[in-house]
Design a protein around this nucleic acid. Sequence first.
DNA 1: CACCTGACTCTAT
DNA 2: AATAGAGCCAGGT
Length: 136
Amino acid sequence: MQPQDERHYERIYQVISQVPKGKVATYGDVATIVGDGCEAATVGQALGALGPRSVQVPWQRVIGRRGDKGRVTTSGLHQRDKLEAEGVEFDDRGLVDLGKFRWTGPSEDWARSHGFQMLPKEEGAPAVPDSQLRLF
DNA sequence: CACCTGACTCTAT
DNA sequence: AATAGAGCCAGGT
C-alpha cells in the first residue's frame, strides 16, 4: 500500500517516535494525542503501513489495551522480545502493567511546539478541556 | 458507491 | 475466562 493522502499517518509516526525506550503506549493513547478524530484502529492501520520506515519508528512500543493492562497484538514480529530487551516486563499471562510501563505522554514543550495535545492525566481527570478531546 | 478488512477497544454474554 | 458484537476510521477492491 502506498497512501498518498494519509491525513493522520505522519502525525501518528511523530507521536510514536516520542515514546522512550522502556515505555509503551496503547493504540488508543497515540490516537488521543494525535487528536483530530484519530482513533485506535487508525493507529493500527498506520503501523501496518509503516514498511521501510519501521527502522526509524519504534513501533514495538505501541501495544493493545486490555483494561489496565497492555498486550502485544502482533504476531511474527517478535514485538514482545524487542520490548523485553528494552526492559518492559510481561506477567505470566503476557500482559504489561500499564501503571508501571505506560508512557505518560509527550513533554509539554514538544506537544506545544508540534501542535499535539497531552495525554489526559489519569482515569477521571482529563488534562485538557472536553472541547479539545474527541473521545466519543 | 457498496462492501470488506484490520497491528483497536469496550460491553455484554 | 473465552467469545461475540458493536462502534469507528481509513484503505483497498
